[in-house]
Design a protein around this nucleic acid. Structure first.
Length: 201
DNA sequence: CAAGAGATCATCT
DNA sequence: GATGATCTCTTGA
């Protein structure tokens, strides 16, 4: 197994967003190893992209986006959900890839326990991690992992996926960015593996 | 199945 | 004081 190193993340964000598809997201927590295949991503690219948080300036929250590649950017949205990103490109250029969905591989019971609500039946496998908020909940990813070095091979990292499972990459506009300018709303910067059932709806 | 509303709080104005 | 890179539940066809 190969842990993806910083070099993987220093490429143009659109390249990294596509290259991450098919790679394995790994989370080590509570003595358990959770993992899943990345099947959907989105690119947020620089100060000119009005959908990118950093386009509003360098603030305490967006500071990690201006740092080196290979670092995680985790934030809370709508008061209840966390989003997981990986910083790309070079220092002082704020860009990142949002992980939108994974296909669960290991640690299914842990994920189910994280996701299931009291008094509710277990979720179907397909609903465990098919969304950016869902996968963070399933993998116990929160703000404590903001700024984490994902090339170190602890707590959270990415491994090279099998090359024998290559799939066609589909693309389209990003989700949930109505606040951005029309040209940024239209940019086809969301990528997913075609016909994969774990892609978000 | 589709549409609408509510949850809930860190961040920035 | 407003808002958001979401999700879940409810309602109604």
């Amino acid at each position: 197994m190969t842990i993806l190193q910083q070099r993987f993340f220093t490429h143009p964000t659109l390249t990294v967003a596509q290259a991450l598809l098919g790679q394995i997201l790994v989370r080590q927590v509570a003595g358990q190893r959770l993992s899943g295949r990345i099947v959907e991503t989105e690119a947020y690219i620089g100060p000119a992209d009005t959908a990118c948080h950093a386009s509003k300036g360098r603030t305490p929250r967006t500071e990690v986006m201006f740092g080196p590649a290979g670092i995680s950017y985790v934030y809370l949205i709508y008061g209840m959900y966390h989003m997981l990103n990986f910083i790309t490109e070079y220092e002082d250029f704020p860009a990142a890839v949002l992980i939108r969905a994974i296909e669960p591989i290991a640690g299914l019971d842990f994920m189910q326990a994280q996701r299931q609500k009291p008094g509710r039946p277990p979720l179907k496998l397909v609903n465990l991690t098919n969304g950016p908020g869902k996968l963070c909940q399933a993998m116990a990813v929160d703000k404590q992992l903001n700024g984490w070095d994902v090339t170190a091979g602890q707590k959270l990292w990415v491994e090279a996926g099998s090359t024998t499972t290559a799939s066609t990459i589909a693309y389209g506009p990003r989700i949930g960015i109505d606040y951005a300018l029309p040209q940024d709303r239209a940019a086809p910067w969301r990528f997913w593996l075609e016909n994969n059932q774990f892609v978000s709806k």
